[in-house]
């Protein structure tokens, strides 16, 4: 198991270098000079722009700047300093990430609980009235764009009923609407996934066996069926969570929450290269960790996968041995 995790962590290194390179390249081909923007736009003198370019080392060749960036990252753990505010990107990310994380975590937990429960009910009562209702609402929930449902909820709860604030993040009441919006769209997708996955499992022979030997229905569903149906559901939750951590840009914009999505979007608009590079790196890293977490969850749910992970190293050795011609030992 530890070997598997280690292998996955090592796999991260080339991906992160690639992400860094990609972010650098995107910034490289972007039109507009950040130095001119910093110097004050149209009114800036060429001397001033040249001076800022020299300070920021913008005239160095691409490869030198990239090397410099990687060196700073590895030796000092420095992911960059914002052109605009002159603050380290890491500090700003550390300040903003908790907001995004809080929103993503609350929504994901609620959505998982509600989504899995409704999905199970829907599956065991297939084609009943309640199944039809749940299926219909989950389909609507999947199709509803989050920016539209946010506006509708604001219209209803903030403007008409005046129950909840429409923007901000200071008290728990501010979190209700954004989390409700993200939570419902995520829950809808989880319901659909759980339902179809459960339906597939319920038809299997071992479920019939469990029932035939007189197992209580509750245990059949929660132990025999659910455990086998959970893998695609967990994949779905992990995927959504990963997207939420970095991509809740629109929700953060509508509800004016200073999260990381908003930070990056603003930086892209302002051509604040280091901010874009640094925060995209952080996002790619967390995304990869979420994926790793999902894969480890698979192992926790399914003993077959667990043993697969355990045997990964051994199997490779065996394969190598088998591939070698007779009379030669594997090195």
């Amino acid at each position: 198991m530890g070997r598997y995790v280690l292998k996955r962590l090592l796999h991260l290194i080339p991906v992160l270098i690639g992400v860094m390179l990609l972010a650098f390249l995107l910034n490289e081909i972007a039109p507009g000079d950040p130095a001119a923007l910093l110097a004050g736009g149209e009114s800036a003198t060429p001397e001033k722009i040249a001076q800022i370019r020299a300070e920021l080392k913008l005239d160095d060749p691409f490869i030198l700047r990239f090397g410099d960036y990687v060196k700073k990252l590895v030796t000092e753990g420095n992911i960059g300093v914002s052109y605009k505010t002159q603050q380290p990107v890491a500090a700003e990310v550390a300040h903003r990430y908790p907001q995004t994380l809080k929103m993503a975590a609350i929504s994901a937990v609620l959505a998982s609980i509600i989504g899995i429960a409704l999905g199970i009910i829907s599956a065991i009562k297939q084609y009943s009235f309640i199944d039809n209702i749940i299926s219909m609402f989950s389909l609507l929930g999947v199709c509803m764009p989050v920016f539209w449902s946010s506006l509708l909820l604001i219209l209803f709860f903030s403007i008409n009923l005046k129950w909840l604030p429409s923007s901000g993040f200071s008290t728990w009441r501010h979190w209700i609407l954004p989390c409700a919006v993200i939570g419902t769209s995520m829950a809808a997708s989880i319901v659909r996934m759980t339902r179809s996955s459960m339906l597939e499992v319920i038809r299997q022979d071992y479920i019939r066996t469990a029932r035939a030997k007189g197992q209580v229905e509750r245990v059949v569903i929660s132990k025999h069926a659910l455990k086998n149906a959970l893998i695609p559901v967990v994949t779905n939750i992990g995927m959504h969570f990963g997207v939420l951590l970095g991509g809740a840009v629109i929700i953060e914009t509508i509800f004016v929450i200073p999260g990381i999505g908003k930070y990056i979007t603003d930086a892209i608009k302002n051509r604040d290269y280091p901010v874009v590079q640094g925060s995209v790196m952080v996002l790619a890293l967390t995304n990869s960790f979420v994926n790793l977490g999902v894969d480890l969850l698979y192992a926790a749910i399914d003993p077959r996968i667990r043993s697969q992970y355990r045997n990964m190293g051994k199997m490779k050795m065996k394969k190598k041995k088998a591939a070698l011609p007779l009379g030669r030992e594997a090195v």
Binding site: V15, L22, I29, P31, L245, G246, G247, V249, I268, L283
Partner: peptide, 24 residues
């Protein structure tokens, strides 16, 4: 596949935002 991993590890909406703001 490694290249796809790299592109996939950047949230797609952010990638789209970056590309539109670069291209106009």
């Amino acid at each position: 596949m490694r290249f796809l991993d790299i592109v996939l590890s950047i949230p797609s909406i952010l990638l789209a935002i970056a590309i539109t703001s670069i291209l106009g």
